[in-house]
Computed example of a mutant assay.
Amino acid sequence: MDRTTDPLDPKGLIRESYRIEGITTAECRSIFLDWALGLPLETDTEDARQGLLTRYRPEHPDHPMTLVLLEGMGEPPARGRRRGGWRARDRKTTS
Rank of each mutant, 00 (worst) to 15 (best):
L52T: 12
P77D: 12
P64H: 06
R55E: 15
E71F: 02
A78I: 15
L70T: 00
P64T: 10
R79L: 09
P77C: 01
G74L: 06
R79W: 12
L53R: 15
G72E: 13
P58C: 05
P61N: 08
T66H: 02
T66C: 07
M73G: 00
G72P: 04
V68F: 00
P64M: 08
G51E: 04
L70H: 04
P77M: 07
R81W: 01
P77W: 03
G80F: 12
G51W: 10
E75H: 10
L53F: 11
H60V: 11
E75M: 11
T54Q: 14
Y56Q: 06
R81A: 03
P76M: 13
E71H: 05
H60A: 07
L70F: 01
T54L: 15
D62L: 02
R79T: 04
H63L: 03
M65R: 02
P77V: 09
L67D: 15
M65W: 01
L67M: 09
T66G: 13
V68L: 01
G80T: 15
R79E: 14
E59A: 04
E59N: 05
D62T: 14
R79Q: 12
G72N: 11
L52D: 13
L52V: 07
G80Q: 12
G80E: 10
M73A: 04
M73N: 06
E59Y: 03
D62F: 01
L52E: 03
R81S: 04
